[in-house]
Amino acid sequence: MAEEVSSQMNSLSISETNPSSSATISLVSGDDIVFKVEPTIAKEMETVQSFIDETDGKITTIPLPNISSHDLPYVIEYCEKSIAGKITKEFEAEFVKKLNNEEVKELFLAANYLNIKKLLDFLSQVIADRIANKSVEYVRRYFGIENDFTPEEEAKLREELAWTFTGVDPDDEDEN
């Protein structure tokens, strides 16, 4: 499998890379779309950087099979802002507004895979905000969690934790 991928990558890099931009790093999404980024961007992604370091910088095309071409631009955008030191509350608010719940989760997993600490913390906060003051049912739906409690068990647990269920917001319309 690994060989397959790398041979595939080689063919991609031959066709896509022109010699003058050899300094750029090519990130290949799971659906085989190539994104060219500056090496400084790659530095933000620990997973990518360690890949480059391991090969002494000879390989500049990195396959990212777990990340789709839909999510990767968001990740790159965030890293670009991060390098420029332009991560402000306003930027983050705008950034999040574009994302639905599923996309947040996908990006979160991408950030985890790429090991981008700042993005990971930020998205954790976003997810936490989105389930704040929500009912148990909402949280289950949000995370796709199957309820495996018997009604009796659940009632008992809720009774134990009853004091925490004051001030729960009414459920939003499910975004998905």
Binding site: F108, L109, N112, L120, D121, S124, Q125, I127, A128, D129, I131, A132, N133, K134, S135, V136, V139, R140, F143, G144, I145, E146, N147, D148, F149, E154, L157, R158, L161, T164, F165, G167, V168
Partner: peptide
Amino acid sequence: SFSDFPEDVQLCILSFLGPTEIASFACTS
């Protein structure tokens, strides 16, 4: 599904929650 997330990642998200949300979360499964 949240269940598919690695546990350290689950904990990372949960670490941003307050006690109220933790209690809700505990009731999910």
